[in-house]
Simulated scan of single mutants.
Amino acid sequence: MIDWGKVSELNQEIGPEDFAEVVELFLEEVDATIAEIAAGMPEERLEETLHFLKGSALNLGFSEFAGLCAKYEQSAHRGAFDKIDLGRVSESYVASKERFLAEWPSRIAA
């Protein structure tokens, strides 16, 4: 679900203080985007939005969430909007976020 190696690498690259800021910004942006999707995003914006979510997730090690976004980004690209489960996208993000926040302090300190 979380690529802790990627998380540790990013933490080491930018330092703990800046890493905490990056995490906060990531969560704020993705929370807002997930809320926008839940409010009813037009189909023509889905591919771009899922691409953004995928990239953001990969940067912070949310590997399962990123994979799901990539899958549905391709569906949107093909116009197969009926194959996109936005509820599943939201659920994956929430589960990933919960695990990340619960395990981040001990995983990074290790």
Score class of each variant (00 low, 15 high):
D85T: 08
W4N: 06
K97G: 09
A95M: 10
E43L: 04
Y93D: 03
S92T: 09
D85K: 03
E43T: 07
A38Y: 08
I108Q: 06
L25R: 10
E17W: 07
A35V: 03
I2H: 08
R107K: 12
K6G: 09
E21D: 13
E48M: 08
P105D: 05
A35P: 03
E91V: 10
L50T: 07
L27F: 15
D18Q: 15
F19I: 04
E103I: 02
F52T: 12
V7F: 09
A109D: 14
K71Y: 05
S106H: 03
S63K: 13
P16K: 15
H51E: 02
S8F: 06
V22C: 00
D82W: 07
A109P: 09
L50R: 10
W4L: 04
F100K: 06
A95W: 06
S96F: 05
F19P: 01
I37W: 03
V30I: 09
I34A: 00
E44Q: 11
Y72C: 07
F52K: 14
T33A: 06
P16N: 15
A35E: 09
V94L: 14
S90W: 00
A102C: 00
G67H: 09
L53W: 01
R99E: 14
P16Q: 15
F100A: 01
P42Q: 12
E36A: 12
W4K: 02
A80M: 12
D82N: 11
G79A: 01
E48Y: 07
F26W: 03
Q74M: 13
A32T: 10
Q74A: 13
R45S: 14
A76P: 06
I14V: 15
I14P: 00
E43G: 03
L60A: 02
E73V: 08
E13V: 09
M1G: 15
E29P: 03
S56W: 01
V22R: 08
A110L: 14
M1N: 14
L101N: 13
E24T: 11
L25A: 02
F81T: 03
E24L: 11
Q74D: 13
I108F: 03
N11H: 15
K97D: 06
D3K: 02
F19D: 02
G87M: 07
D31R: 05
R78P: 08
A110E: 15
R78T: 14
R45F: 12
A35N: 01
P105F: 08
G67L: 11
G61T: 09
H51V: 05
K83P: 10
I84D: 00
A38Q: 08
E44T: 13
S90E: 11
K71Q: 14
A39C: 00
R107D: 04
A110V: 12
D3A: 04
S96D: 10
E28W: 05
P42L: 13
A110I: 12
A109I: 10
